[in-house]
């Protein structure tokens, strides 16, 4: 496996989180359509972002601001 193709496979996590920059997002999506390995991995990872949202919501409910806000006060 070439270094560049390994990189593409690793994009699956950033893709699942929705944080790839637009160009990479498009590129990974094209790759995804033909890579069964990435498809399987995407299915596996797809519930993680929803779980991370629990932390995010918990913070916004229980804290008055983000870490940045507090640091600047």
């Amino acid at each position: 496996m070439s270094p560049s193709s390994r990189d593409v496979h690793e994009d699956v996590a950033a893709y699942a989180l929705g944080v790839l920059d637009e160009e990479d997002h498009q590129a990974f999506e094209r790759h995804l359509m033909s890579c069964e390995e990435c498809q399987a991995e995407l299915r596996e990872l797809s519930e993680v972002p929803g779980l991370l949202d629990a932390v995010r919501q918990d913070r916004s409910n229980s804290l008055t601001g983000t870490d940045d806000d507090r640091a600047s006060r």
Binding site: E10, V19, L20, D21, L45, V48
Partner: peptide
């Protein structure tokens, strides 16, 4: 996005993606 985080953290985007991959797993 990956690009924004890379800039803030001062590491290459590829490194952010790779760490994110292993971190999320």
């Amino acid at each position: 996005t990956i690009g924004e985080a890379a800039e803030i953290l001062g590491i290459p985007p590829g490194t952010v993606k790779s760490r994110l991959y292993y971190g999320i797993r």
